[in-house]
Amino acid sequence: MEELIKKIQKGDEVAFKQLTQSMEKDLYVIAKLRLKNDDDIKDAIQNTMISVYKNAKKIRNIKYFKTWMFRILINECNKIYNSNNRKNNILDKLKVNSTYNNYENSIQLIDDKLNFESIINQLNYDEKIIITLYYHSQFSCAEISKLLKININTVKSRLKRAKDKLKKQYGEVEIYEKK
């Protein structure tokens, strides 16, 4: 990875795309926490790549390259999320209010109860991103602290809180399944 980063700093586009592809699962999963639409995720990832490539030379300690790229991705996702927010709020309301979607929604709710994704989705964004960075991207608490610019103790407490919530929900779903 270090070799690739050095090439990127010299302007090697292919090396940068190779590196990005090696992280695509992490990038996608993190972006998906904020953005529902794959087109938006695509925009966020591409904008992140443009920013990172343009500023790659500026990074002195290449061991933080991945952390830095993820921080830019999170910012890009937040920008798109905020821009979509008003529209999404309205559309969400419409789905709840609309008689056309009620039947479909109720079926979906039952299905959702049975999968782990829906349990994770019940966490708030701050909790979800920590859980995902920790378990999926396998960042340490210290790295997450740097990436999200929050105190390491806050990372630890949010991680614990998120896990506790998941455990509780998971237990409830298991009981629900047994019934």
Binding site: K17, Q21, E24, K42, N47, M49, Y53
Partner: peptide, 22 residues
């Protein structure tokens, strides 16, 4: 998404995010 990683023009400007494009 994989295709987008390879298709991106790295020297271009970032895409503008706007309500109406969404």
């Amino acid at each position: 998404i994989t295709e987008a990683i390879w298709d991106v023009e790295l020297k271009s400007k970032k895409k503008k995010i706007s309500y109406f494009t969404n």
